[in-house]
Amino acid sequence: MLTARTERIAVRGPHDIVNVRQVVRGWCLAVGMGLVDLTKMVTAASEIARNTLEYGGGGALTIEELRDGVRQGVRLIFEDQGPGIPDIDRAMTDGYTSGTGMGLGLGGTKRLVDQFDIASTPGQGTRVAITKWKAR
């Protein structure tokens, strides 16, 4: 698998969520993703960006364009230095919400993408990577 190009953008405030949606949209269009897949990816990006902001206290997003043989896709890596998620399995369950009553649980977001990886260390931060491939 090959990373064709990358871009890094900040996730620091509510306006950045809008920015994340627009930038991710552009990258999905660039690899020729269909409308439904694109909508799913942008929505997933919006969900995780909000998590990064609300629970992680802000962070950054790295966008990568992937090539794997003839396959093309987009990978988004969200990283924050927040308190981390103590129980990832519980956070992945549908209907899970933390303190503020926000958050749908990450399970829904996982269903929108082809690959979902999460790593979190309490006290150090969280890293969520999601990938969506262009359907052939």
């Binding site: 409308l35 439904v36 909508t39 799913k40 929505t43 969900e47 269903r111 929108l112």
Partner: peptide, 14 residues
């Protein structure tokens, strides 16, 4: 609501 939005919302669980 656009079709792609409706499909995404359902998949998301909303």
């Amino acid at each position: 609501m656009q079709p792609a939005v409706a499909i995404t919302l359902v998949e998301l669980g909303l």
